[in-house]
């Protein structure tokens, strides 16, 4: 059974990480890591394991040590440089109540029920296995960056690069930052029911228009691959084009083409691919209607 460590400071936390390496699992709200998967008992209570089929989160199989982050003061909202900044330990219910961008509030609201959102954190959402992690999809559309604390200091990485890299965890995720969005942001979720639904797919788009033409486009998908993903092919089709039914249909088709969804108990690959097209079209359509 794992030993639970609860450091009081970042320096203590980074020491623990350096000392225990891959024998350590970091737990924030616990809503994923504490779920008893199929390996309950085999690899210690609640530690989800990459070697077992079923739920996966902790990248440290057979963790001997678990570190909680509750005392590190990471649960705040700290805007920096005129942008948005969230502590990794900020609960989703507080994000839902306080985020200045409606799309972020909407995404937080779509995760679990109220009790789960009181516990789950923004940082934890970044590490969620697919098809979960709805908030991360909006953060990806906002081109957020992550800050990791390590013994030698801080390290920053864009969220897009983090996922492109295979979501490898090094150090402790302390904060998530993004510039104020320079365009319209829309988040849509295709689920199985209205509230507290597992994700079929999620779509977040951030579109900047300039004289009727798309100046910048970021399209992020959840439930459509191994990690939340940006969809460069669809973005490139839009840039410089007028946002109209033709360009929207082309972008939606490109997104459906480029994504690589899995079949699981929530939905099939076939259905997810079609829903990617439908929800990208709807999300861009909302911006077209509003412009």
């Amino acid at each position: 059974m794992a030993e639970y460590l609860l450091p009081d400071s970042l320096s203590e936390a980074t020491e623990i990480i350096a000392e225990h390496g891959r024998a350590l699992a970091i737990v924030a709200g616990g809503t994923s890591a504490m779920r008893c998967g199929t390996c309950r008992g085999k690899h210690g209570r609640g530690i989800l394991c990459l070697e077992c089929p079923g739920p996966r989160l902790v990248s440290v199989p057979n963790a001997a040590f678990v570190m909680g982050i509750q005392r590190l003061g990471l649960d705040g909202v700290a805007p920096a440089n005129g942008g948005l900044g969230f502590g990794a330990g900020l609960s989703l219910s507080r994000l839902q109540a306080s985020a200045p961008i409606p799309a972020l509030r909407a995404a937080a609201r779509q995760v679990g029920g109220p009790a789960l959102r009181n516990m789950a954190t923004v940082g934890g959402n970044i590490f969620e296995r697919q098809p979960y992690g709805d908030v991360a999809v909006v953060l990806l559309a906002l081109d957020a960056s992550l800050t990791f604390a390590e013994r030698d200091g801080e390290r920053s990485q864009t969220l897009a690069a983090f996922y492109a890299d295979g979501a490898k965890q090094g150090g402790l995720l302390t904060r998530i930052d993004c510039a104020a969005p320079d365009g319209e942001v829309v988040f849509l979720k295709c689920g199985r029911r209205r509230f507290n639904s597992p994700t079929v797919v999620t779509v977040a788009v951030c579109i900047a228009l300039d004289g009727g033409k798309v100046r910048r486009a970021r399209i992020a998908l959840g439930g459509a691959g191994a990690h939340p993903m940006r969809c460069a092919a669809a973005e490139e089709l839009l840039i410089g084009a007028a946002l109209d039914p033709t360009s929207i249909a082309a972008a939606a088709a490109a997104a459906a083409d480029a994504c690589d969804p899995a079949t699981d108990v929530v939905a099939s690959e076939w259905y997810r691919r079609r829903m990617v097209a439908t929800y990208v079209r709807r999300a861009l359509g909302e911006i077209e209607q509003g412009s």
Binding site: Y4, G29, T31, M34, R35, G68
Partner: peptide, 12 residues
């Protein structure tokens, strides 16, 4: 605050 006690490590 409403919590799910089955997911909360009591040590924290």
């Amino acid at each position: 605050e409403l919590w799910l006690s089955c997911l909360a490590p009591v040590a924290a």
